[in-house]
Design a binder for these strands. Structure first.
Length: 501
RNA sequence: GCGGACGUAGCUCAGUUGGUUAGAGCGCUGGAUUGUGGCUUCAGAGGUCGGUGGUUCAAAUCCACCCGUUCGUACCA
């Protein structure tokens, strides 16, 4: 045993890093298809592409200033030659803010741009959750009015439909940060001393989808015990505060919002934030209505939270409403597939001047899993190539095979010559079978002498083969195969491909 | 990060109270078949039993720690 162990050469284990995956041909094609459809919508809305690099100086990205203890908390960071910290971008918004600030004198505002690209997060990966994933963003920089936000919401809705998601299978939920801030202020959570508590409240509200109203009420109050028996400390609000909070958070139109804040207990507690938020939502709602985006597409929902860090006004997110099942057939909570909002302070960090902006992000990788499971994405509809098999290995024959391939390619047909070891013909057939080749082309010495070529319809061949039992018979029958004039190869292949559709 | 479950061949899994050389199905490679996919049949390759340490005459099996997967939870720009 010990001897055996020593003799074994230590093989290097091939493995991709945790949370990183390789993409198959089908995935790449599906992604390309999605990106194309999304881009078409953005272009139609008058946005232009711009691209930023994968790395940024860490301080430009935002809150993660790596200290020597944990330089990679949340982000992947490395130190450059000159000891400056750089990080892989974790979203596309912060780098855009940097780009705008750096080029503020050349850029004409309002600046309308889109971009897609990989972003990286150094977090615990899970099923459908990776440390590298793709986002597709659109932003309007230098637009202070909520009509820019409303446009974003409508563009998100159009994008969902362009991707083949039916109306009613998605919804864009819209809120305004000022409403949440105002409500929290109204129940006495204003001021710097309550900053921590406000965060807890927002985090709790964000879990409405997951835990339902009862679960969130527990989180807002004393706390909640989860299935594993773990206890999560609550925000510590009393029953009355929670009720007042829910009185607003469950509403679904600006009219209802105005009504509630016009009556007790809000009549006396309402504040500038709450009123401004309601007014902004009202303006956006009327834009949606005027443009024909009813509540089955875009819906006001004061429980929407989004990120805690930089949003300052309207926030919005796209949610899928149909059930998504995973490979094991289990239903998965899918949640939002994209979202965004107004970030008026992000560029100002660099320039000192107010540069209001709004934009959103679509989680391409995430959305793709949903669409794939739903069969709404072209299931790799690229046809495998026609295979020209190699029967004779002399120089002249090889040249003839290659010529057939080139002729087919010249006619726009995917084609390839067998590039493995050609000594075993049945191996070539098995290759064609596994590859899914629709047609195999065969020319041996006999055919060449008489200027013919064999064309084998792999689909028809498979069908006929089912009735044949003995191997001898099967081989003799050559199912699905017929002979044509070598000169008409391209035409015959075209004809057969068309017939196979 | 915290708590639970799990980890044996490429895949799905079996492996008795700790006991000889760790198995099956599928897949893979090759032969039967030097001009034909499927079927049939024969053969073969493939395992640090997740890792390290410990208990024991003896560990895939028991113990500890670590790593990974997964579920819940926390965090998520």
């Amino acid at each position: 045993m010990a001897d055996k162990k020593k003799k074994k050469p230590q093989k290097l284990k091939a493995r991709s890093p945790r949370g990183f995956v390789d993409r198959s041909a089908a995935d790449i094609r599906a992604t390309d298809e999605m990106i194309g459809k999304i881009r078409e919508v953005y272009e139609r809305y008058g946005f232009d592409p711009v691209e930023t690099p994968a790395f940024e100086y860490t301080d430009c990205l935002g809150k993660f200033l790596p200290d020597t203890d944990r330089p990679n908390a949340g982000v992947f960071s490395v130190q450059d030659d000159d000891e400056q910290w750089m990080s892989l971008r974790y979203d596309l918004t912060a780098p855009l803010a940097r780009h705008v600030a750096e080029n503020i004198n050349e850029i004409t505002l309002p600046y309308r741009t889109y971009r897609n690209g990989w972003v990286f997060r150094n977090e615990k990966p899970g099923p459908g959750r990776f440390r590298q994933f793709m986002q597709f963003d659109a932003d309007t920089v230098g637009a202070p009015g909520v009509q820019a936000d409303a446009e974003m919401c409508m563009m998100m809705a159009d994008t969902m439909e362009a991707l083949g998601i039916a109306r009613g299978d998605y919804v864009i939920r819209v809120n305004n940060r000022k409403v949440l801030d105002g409500v929290m202020e109204a129940i006495g959570l204003g001021g710097d001393e309550n900053a921590e508590k406000r965060l807890t409240v927002l985090r709790s509200l964000d879990k409405l989808d997951k835990f339902g109203e009862e679960g969130v009420r527990q989180l807002l109050g004393k706390g909640r015990k989860d299935d594993s028996g773990d206890f999560t400390e609550g925000a510590g609000l009393d029953e009355q505060d929670i009720s007042e909070l829910f009185g607003i958070v469950i509403l679904s139109t600006p009219d209802e919002l105005f009504e509630v804040i016009g009556k007790p207990p809000y009549e006396t507690k309402r504040n500038a934030n709450l009123i401004a938020g309601a007014n902004e939502l009202n303006t956006m709602q009327s834009i949606f209505e005027n443009c024909g985006y009813e509540r089955d597409r875009i819906k006001i929902d004061p429980s929407v939270v989004r990120g805690l860090e930089y949003y300052t006004g309207p926030v919005y997110e796209a949610e899928l409403l149909f059930d998504v099942t995973n490979e094991k057939g289990e239903k998965v909570q899918f949640g939002s597939v994209g979202g965004g909002g107004r970030y008026d302070g992000l560029v100002k960090r660099f320039t000192g001047q107010d540069v209001p902006a709004t934009g959103f992000s679509i989680g391409v990788s995430r959305l793709m899993t949903a669409l794939k499971n739903l069969g709404k994405l072209g299931q790799d509809d690229v046809l495998a190539p026609v295979l020209v098999t190699v029967m004779d290995k002399d120089t002249e024959s090889l040249g003839a095979y290659q010529k057939m391939v080139q002729d087919l390619r010249g006619a726009g047909i995917r084609a390839e010559m067998y590039q493995g070891n050609p000594k075993d013909f049945s191996k070539q057939m098995r290759y064609a079978d596994k590859r899914g080749c629709p047609i195999v082309i065969i020319q041996g010495n006999d055919e060449r002498q008489s200027g013919k070529v064999q064309l084998k319809d792999m689909i028809e061949g498979k069908r006929q083969a089912a009735a044949i039992e003995s191997n001898e018979e099967y081989r003799a029958a050559r199912p699905g195969q017929f002979e044509i004039e070598a000169g008409s190869l391209v035409d015959e292949v075209k004809k057969l491909l068309a017939a196979q559709k």
